[in-house]
Amino acid sequence: MEFGNNIKKERKKQGLTLEELASRSGVSRSMLSMIERGEKNPSIQVASQIAEGLDVTISYLLGEHQSKEVYVIRSEQQLVYKDESTGIERHLLSPSFPSKGVEFILNIIPPKQETGVFPAHKSGVKEYIYVALGKLQIELGNDSETYVLEKGDSIYFEADVTHRFINLSEGECHYYLVIDSNHVNA
């Protein structure tokens, strides 16, 4: 699988062993090994942990490395990651420019499903969310500050805390997410 190969390439490029990446990401060495060999497809939560451990984005690991100043992405070209266990979909709507530090994403959560807890991003990363359909509960930090957003609501937060998203709706929840890592503190 391309995703697993890209993880392995990036890990080796950074000179990391499986053990070192496991320590940095919180994902077991055996799970990382199975993902790299294409034997296991990670959940979105685990993919996020691996990306954080490698200091890259999920989109980067999916193979989106374009750096053109003008780039059109047709609907059939959008990178989509689907979590097989929950049905959650992550649609990359913009090119991923790691050097520019911005991602534009559509997340679709099936009824009554949740993402699990995403790891905290590095200090300086910000997330902007707009709910287009449904009702979304957002839990931030270890103390689980809870916010409930309905269709048309938006939220901004500094994403250097753990975060979890829960669809409270009887139908799908669609929310747009902008991740801004332009001002990451080293």
Score class of each variant (00 low, 15 high):
6 N>D: 04
7 I>M: 06
10 E>Q: 14
15 G>R: 07
17 T>C: 07
24 R>G: 03
32 L>V: 08
32 L>Q: 11
34 M>S: 12
35 I>S: 10
39 E>K: 13
40 K>D: 00
48 S>F: 03
50 I>N: 05
53 G>T: 09
58 I>G: 08
69 E>I: 12
70 V>E: 04
73 I>R: 11
75 S>W: 02
77 Q>P: 01
77 Q>D: 15
78 Q>M: 13
85 S>G: 00
88 I>N: 04
88 I>A: 04
93 L>I: 07
95 P>H: 07
97 F>D: 09
98 P>S: 02
104 F>I: 13
106 L>W: 01
111 P>Y: 10
115 T>V: 11
132 A>K: 09
133 L>A: 01
135 K>D: 03
137 Q>R: 15
143 D>G: 00
144 S>Q: 14
144 S>V: 00
145 E>D: 08
148 V>S: 01
153 D>G: 04
154 S>A: 10
157 F>C: 09
157 F>R: 06
158 E>G: 00
158 E>F: 04
158 E>I: 06
161 V>M: 07
163 H>C: 08
164 R>C: 05
170 E>M: 08
171 G>R: 09
172 E>M: 04
174 H>Y: 14
176 Y>T: 03
176 Y>I: 10
176 Y>C: 01
178 V>K: 02
181 S>N: 11
182 N>D: 01
184 V>Y: 02
185 N>H: 09
